[in-house]
């Protein structure tokens, strides 16, 4: 449903995205992992129109959307959330979510009603009249999810919606993400919480220094020598292999 081909983006000297190609299948949860600064958020920004790629293309639902602005891409059914949450501060949770709902709903009353509905789904039903700015970190992450969901997307890109949550909050949010998929929404997520990646996604891509270095099921990928090196440093894979051979 989403086809990314050869995306390149440099910031000054840094190649934040280096010839990245991937293909997201419809109806699944897939994921993107990689160490800090690997270029994951940049890739999301390139796909959703927040950055213009230096080279490469993005196709969504069979159409070329490379270079389209974010609002046009959202209108076609692909939305992203922000790693650094971006609430409409000063507006209530209900009003925040209604902005998403308004994408396809003209009437204010209907949008507010839909917001209530969506808030219930992500577990914000008891905080509808709270100022979004006074939510906890976990609450704000849920709000990011809710706003995106309210646009009735076909594909959602979640950028670290679990980061900053404690283990019990993570356990609460994982079923929410699953429920989104059950409703027929395709999900691509960026996540550092490996427990979540393992339990949620069927397929994962690993990004390091802007380039894809591995892909496969999460279980396969974490043992991949290049991935171990990317996370733990050069030579680490070899040392681990040696130690394991020694113990055997």
């Amino acid at each position: 449903m989403l086809e990314v081909r050869g995306l390149v983006k440099s910031f000054g000297g840094v190649k934040a995205s280096n010839n990245v190609s991937l293909s997201v299948p419809e109806g699944r949860i897939t994921s993107l992992i990689g160490p800090n600064g690997a270029g994951k958020t940049t890739l999301f920004a390139l796909i959703t129109g927040f950055h213009k790629p230096d080279a490469g293309s993005v196709h969504f639902l069979g159409e070329d959307i490379t270079g389209l602005p974010p609002e046009k891409i959202a209108q076609r059914g692909m939305v992203r959330t922000f790693q650094i949450v971006q609430p409409f501060a000063g507006q209530t949770v209900r009003e925040n979510i209604a902005v998403g709902a308004h994408l396809h709903v003209q009437s204010r009353a209907d949008a507010l009603e839909k917001a209530e509905d969506v808030a219930g789904k992500v577990g914000l039903g008891d905080r509808l009249d709270m100022d979004a700015a006074s939510l906890t970190v976990a609450g704000r992450k849920r709000l990011e999810v809710a706003r995106a969901l309210a646009t009735d997307p076909k594909l959602i890109l979640f950028d670290e919606v679990l980061a900053g949550l404690n283990p019990s909050e993570i356990r609460d949010v994982i079923p929410v993400i699953r429920a989104v998929r059950e409703e027929g929404v395709t999900i691509l997520l960026i996540e550092h919480v490996m427990q979540a990646v393992m339990s949620l996604s069927e397929h994962t891509w690993v990004l390091n220094q802007g380039a894809l270095i591995a892909e496969g099921t999460p279980a396969d990928v974490v043992g991949h020598p290049l991935v171990v090196e990317a996370y733990l440093g050069k030579g680490m894979a070899e040392r681990i292999a040696k130690r394991e051979a020694h113990h055997a």
Partner: peptide, 21 residues
């Protein structure tokens, strides 16, 4: 809707655009 979108742009333009505004 116009007003809701206008206030969304005021409070966070990037977030508003991400939601199709």
């Amino acid at each position: 809707r116009f007003g809701a979108q206008l206030m969304a742009v005021r409070d966070n333009e990037d977030a508003a655009r991400a939601l199709g505004v």
